[in-house]
Structure formats: structure tokens, C-alpha cells
Amino acid sequence: MTEAFLILLGTIFVNNFVMVQFLGLCPFMGASQQFDSAVGMAAATTFVLTLSSAISYLVEHYVLVPFDLQYLRIISFIVIIASLVQFAEIIIRATQPILHQILGIFIPLITTNCAVLGVALLNVRQSLNFFEATLYGFGAALGFSLLLIMFAAIREKQAQQNIPVAFRGAAINMITAGLLSLAFMGFTGMD
């Protein structure tokens, strides 16, 4: 139990995928314009990331390794992720049409969220068991979600403020992301 708790804390804060490992930056910058769509994006990514780390674990250990097919690892993981994203899109379109409209292109783009593939590949390298691998994916998704939602709140606040013209838009977002990453360096040294 303590082990599980530590994996969660480690992936959410200490090795946060966005702020410390710099994975998943495209949706972090792209889907954080509005608070509500960021929450939707966070939920969709959590769904995909958790399931994909579980399924890719099963595929790695029951298909790729027994048949000596490790060279197909990346491509098979991408197929798993893409089908999960498609599945998530169908669910969102059926249950939340407005959110589907707002997120638009960003839902299919979860496929290319490097954090998703990154977690699946890191799971293999760290040789975790099935439970740990799933939890690792879930923790990574929570860390990503936390940062995405925090960043969306920051951007909504800044939209009402008079940021100097030269720094408006992407520039101030990069600076904010950099300073947030600096703050996350405070977690250095915890394992």
C-alpha cells in the first residue's frame, strides 16, 4: 500500500511528466486555453493513459516477449493508444457533444501526446509488475491533469490582465511554464 502511494506521489510531483520530464507539452500548451476544455482534456487523457499502460503491459508480456517480437514494441503500443483514443472520442461524442466540439482536433491528438507513449515505454524499461505499471500510468495522468488544469486557470487569469504586448500569447506561456518547472525542481532528490 505504501509502495502504491509512493508511486502515485512520485509520478504526480517528483517526476511530473510535464514539468520534470518535459513530456506531453503539446496538449499542455495547446489545450489549456479554457478551463472547462482543459478539464475535459485532462479526463480524456487520464482515461487513455491509464488503460494504455495496462494494455501495453499485457501486450508486452504475453505477446511481444513470448514470440520474441520486441522490435514491434513502438508500433504495437501506438496502435493500442490510437484505438483507445478512438474509443474515448466515441464516448465523448456520445455523452458530451459540447465538449467534443470545444476539444475538436485535440482528442485525436492524444495519440501523439508523447507522455502516453512515454509512459508505456518507461513501464517496460522499469520492469514493473502489472499493478505498478497501471498505477504508474494513472499517476502520470494525474500529474499531467493537475498541471494542465493549473495552467488553464493561470491563462484564464492572465487573459483578463494587461500583459505587455511583446509578451502576450505564446511568450508569456513559455515563461510561466519555465517558472513552474523551476518550482518543481524543489522536489529534486526525493525518490
Binding site: 478551463f35 488544469i149 493549473m150 486557470a153 493561470i154 484564464e156 487569469k157 510561466t176 517558472l179 513552474l180 523551476l182 518550482a183 518543481f184 525542481m185 524543489g186 522536489f187 529534486t188 532528490g189 526525493m190
Partner: peptide, 24 residues
Amino acid sequence: TGAYPEGIAFAILLMNGASPLIDH
């Protein structure tokens, strides 16, 4: 648990980043 001698600066920066979310 951290590697740095003093945690206050990082703690404050992290919460600074979270305060728009808290307000929201």
C-alpha cells in the same frame, strides 16, 4: 526529503502557480 536546504521558496512558488486554480 528534498535535496535543497530550504523548502520555503519552492513551496511558495508551487502554491503561487496553484493560486489561480484555488481562486477558480
